[in-house]
């Protein structure tokens, strides 16, 4: 067990053309090439994907759930950012 812990990677898969890559899980691999191969074996055994991204988990900076209010509350009170906030007379039709 002298070997250092194998790095963790986050796996993102594009399931169909036209869709974004979506996070589907994580895995351990010593390098990017092996991470891609492992992701193929682990997450696309039933044709789930057309394209895979692997990203070292250590490269991800995440927001702190404790800061949830500070981060996201300001957006909640700004309903004027949504189209339904504005009144358009029915006679004008679809806008």
């Amino acid at each position: 067990m002298a070997t250092p812990n194998t790095p963790l990677w986050e796996v993102f898969i594009r399931s169909r053309n036209g869709l974004a890559h979506k996070h589907c899980g994580s895995l351990h691999a010593p390098d990017a090439t092996m991470a891609l191969q492992a992701a193929r074996d682990l997450y696309t055994r039933r044709g789930e994907g057309l394209s895979i991204w692997v990203v070292p988990s250590s490269a991800i900076t995440a927001s702190d759930p404790a800061d949830k209010a500070m981060m996201f509350e300001p957006a909640e009170s700004k309903i004027y950012r949504h189209p339904t906030f504005y009144e358009v007379p029915e006679e004008v039709g679809h806008m």
Binding site: T6, L8, L27, D41, L42, R45
Partner: peptide, 30 residues
């Protein structure tokens, strides 16, 4: 063969889920 490979995959999804709680793969396997 496909079934046994699935079981391995299930083990790996689960280890990954346990690791999100702060346990390392190596310590779990050991």
């Amino acid at each position: 063969l496909a079934k046994v490979q699935d079981e391995c995959g299930h083990g790996l999804y689960l280890y990954a889920a346990a690791e999100t709680l702060g346990a390392s793969r190596e310590e779990l396997v050991d």
